[in-house]
Simulated scan of single mutants.
Amino acid sequence: MTPQKIDMDGHSLFFKNIASGSKGNCTLIWDDSDLIVIDLGITMRKFMESFKALSLENREISLFISHEHSDHIGGVPITSKYVDMDIYARPAIAHSFRKKTYEMDGTLVVGNFEIRAFEIPHDAADPVGFSVHWHDRKISVVSDLGKVTDRVIDGVKDSDILAFESNHDVEMLRTGSYPEVLKRRILSDHGHLSNEQSAEAIAKVSTDRTRIILTHLSQENNTPETAIKEVKSYLDNRNVPYMSIETADQYRGSSLYVLER
């Protein structure tokens, strides 16, 4: 990751997804005093390289876990052994970590941030999505869900940044090489969202200030070009407003976003 010069002026909110996909997920949200990490499914080396590139060393870390699948927590045991961090997880999985983990049920305040967890349908123990509120700004991070519920819509509406799963193209999945049992799991209500499902959900919540980041793209059953085309076409054909749209990459993550108060 190329080092980036970032001006910490006390009036800015920063967002960077550093990995998104079945091989590992991790998202960073920070201001001049606090750092929120959502999921840590990457190696400690990649995590620390990203910290150095973003000038985030020696910062208090609050890690929030969405669910217990390895691509979301795989880096926690080793990284938390060498890097000081507070870990927050739902009661159903808080006992899974050797390091002391705080149970999160509802809303939690960390510095200038208010973090809200909401239930999502996935084949895990009490999985959640997150909305992170900072002054009058809102960032939502949601992936690994088989369908979009009213609770999800309520959780992500009015977001300035919306990082939302767009896992697969249905036809690519159905005609692809995955075993039938895995295809059924992905297509189920507790699997993963298709590009079309993602577009339908985003259309309900997007505004002219929403920066859309499509996440958790399958490397077998989707491409960045396909996801962007399907979601963008759906939104544009219905005159749904949004500020920008991109995909997050497994290895490079997303662009760096800076929001002012």
Score class of each variant (00 low, 15 high):
D189R: 09
K204M: 09
L108Q: 12
G74M: 14
M48Y: 07
D126S: 13
G74S: 12
E260Q: 11
N167K: 10
G24M: 09
A203P: 11
C26Y: 06
G111P: 01
S194W: 08
I245E: 07
I73Y: 01
H135D: 12
L256C: 14
L173C: 06
A92P: 00
R261I: 07
A201F: 04
T2P: 06
N58K: 09
G24N: 11
S254F: 02
N25T: 11
G10V: 07
S80Q: 01
F64Q: 04
R174V: 09
D86Y: 05
I120N: 04
V170N: 08
V156E: 00
E49C: 09
D236W: 03
F64H: 08
Q197K: 13
P77F: 06
W134P: 08
D34T: 14
G155E: 07
S198I: 04
L217A: 05
G41K: 07
S20V: 05
V76T: 11
E220F: 10
S244C: 00
K183I: 13
S96A: 12
S20D: 00
V258Y: 03
I61A: 00
H190Y: 05
S20C: 07
N58A: 03
E196Y: 08
S218L: 08
D249E: 14
E49D: 15
K46R: 15
G111S: 08
Q4T: 14
